[in-house]
């Protein structure tokens, strides 16, 4: 109960950090190209969580980022959509040319 009584910005940051790290590890370990993409999405969400937490007036009545946090979060969401579209196009191109989605096989430029 002591733990419950004290939800603050820090706890939101902790959730954001966990999502970020999960995404980063996901990016590092997955061999499937789309798995790597999902890791990127998790990382972006972890970052977004921080913006929302710092921008929240509920959590930080004084000194919050206010709308700035939410606006940056919106931009992140929009850019994530763009990123996903491009990355998916790359993935499909890679799949068409190499018949695989294993990122370890994308080593042609490896001198």
């Amino acid at each position: 109960m002591i733990l419950i009584g004290t939800v603050s910005v820090s706890w939101y940051l902790a959730v954001g950090a966990s999502l970020f790290v999960l995404g980063a590890v996901c990016m590092a370990t997955k061999r499937n190209l789309l798995g790597v993409l999902m890791g990127v999405e998790l990382v972006l969400n972890g970052a977004n969580m921080n913006f929302i937490a710092f921008g929240s007036k509920v959590l930080r009545p004084e000194g919050s980022l206010g709308l700035d946090g939410q606006l940056i979060a919106l931009f992140v969401i929009v850019l994530a959509a763009a990123e996903a579209a491009v990355a998916l196009a790359i993935a499909l191109n890679f799949y068409n040319n190499h018949n695989t989605v294993d990122v370890d096989r994308a080593n042609e430029l490896n001198g």
Binding site: I52, L74, I77, A80, A81, L88, A91, L92
Partner: peptide
């Protein structure tokens, strides 16, 4: 956290758009 609009946007763009795209790729 009180960010209603961003939450709805997250559901609409991220979950409804981006992830459908991803699943498409999958």
């Amino acid at each position: 956290a009180g960010a209603e609009f961003v939450g709805a946007m997250q559901l609409m763009i991220y979950v409804g758009g981006t992830l459908v795209l991803l699943i498409f790729g999958v």
